[in-house]
């Protein structure tokens, strides 16, 4: 551990990131540019989230890292080990025990609390980017609150599919001002963004942006009066723990067309099964 400065980054870099985080907190939903560093992992592996986490960590923290809700996938394991090695912090898989949770594309099912910070890994922070590729123009659109284009996109969804087909990366408006990309979380998770007691920080390494949602910030998913926002999920219960209220992954189990649905949040599912709750296949599947 003495081979590294605490939490890997040098102090000058951490100060720069910390100042960006504070400005992000002061202007909820606004993307603060920062001088993203090269990290010892490729872009797309959560370098933005890693830098935000590194700037926030203290030796007293308990860190949890999830990838699509799972604690045991490659991305989550490698980032967790990275901070065990470079910061020597305690790690956990239990949502309730963690003080900092770095996440790729999910918000944990267990409600977060005031003492917690949720750090999102963000690939494309600009919600308008696929509608307008020029940074100069999207910046101007945020400046003028010119968000009509985003509603046109949602309207075209309705015209084409009869319903808003956007199912993840669903755009939100923060405190009636900035339209924000919540990172590619399923829209099932969007309601948890609003009024959350935890501090939510977003880091985009390749795109060099940091943004934030302070606790209890009002976050509204964009919609229309006649096509209101719906937080959808697969119409099943978890086959392992029987949960009807959690976001599910669909798993193909053989080449005969059989499939099962399981909680994407592995900690939530494990906790429920440990409490004796069993789903359709919970007895046979280990």
């Amino acid at each position: 551990m003495s081979d590294y400065n605490f939490a890997y980054l040098d102090e000058q870099t951490k100060r720069m990131i910390r100042r960006a985080i504070l400005k992000g907190v002061a202007i909820p939903g606004y993307q603060v540019p920062f001088a993203s560093r090269e990290m010892p992992m490729p872009y797309g592996w959560g370098t933005g989230g890693v830098q935000v986490t590194a700037a926030c960590l203290t030796p007293d923290d308990v860190l949890k890292v999830i990838d699509q809700g799972a604690d045991d996938t490659t991305n989550a394991v490698s980032i967790r080990r990275f901070f065990q090695k470079t910061a020597g912090v305690e790690v956990t898989e239990a949502t309730a025990e963690a003080t900092i949770i770095q996440t790729r594309h999910r918000i944990p099912e267990t409600p977060l609390t005031e003492g917690q910070i949720l750090v999102y890994q963000v690939p494309i922070p600009e919600p308008l980017r696929f509608l307008e590729p020029r940074e100069t123009e999207t910046r101007r659109m945020h400046e003028l609150e010119e968000y009509g284009l985003m509603h046109v996109k949602l309207y075209e969804d309705i015209a084409r599919h009869g319903t808003i087909a956007t199912s993840y990366d669903y755009p939100v408006r923060v405190e009636g001002r900035y339209v924000m990309d919540p990172s590619p979380i399923p829209k099932f998770d969007n309601p948890k963004l609003s009024g959350n007691p935890a501090l939510q920080l977003f880091g985009a390494g390749r795109e060099q942006r940091i943004y934030a949602l302070p606790p209890y910030t009002q976050v509204v998913s964009l919609d229309f009066e006649d096509h209101p926002f719906v937080a959808s999920k697969a119409e099943h219960d978890c086959d392992l723990c029987g949960a009807s209220d959690s976001y599910l992954d669909e798993v193909i189990t053989d080449d005969q067309g059989n499939r099962m649905f399981v909680c994407s949040d592995t900690d939530y599912c494990r906790t429920r099964r440990a409490a004796g709750l069993v789903g359709r296949l919970g007895g046979e599947a280990a």
Partner: peptide, 19 residues
């Protein structure tokens, strides 16, 4: 011990600005 003390101080400052 700048890395650890500034980390703790920043978390307090962040908490203050966020709440």
């Amino acid at each position: 011990d700048a890395p650890v003390q500034s980390a703790r101080a920043f978390r307090t400052a962040l908490d203050a600005m966020a709440r």
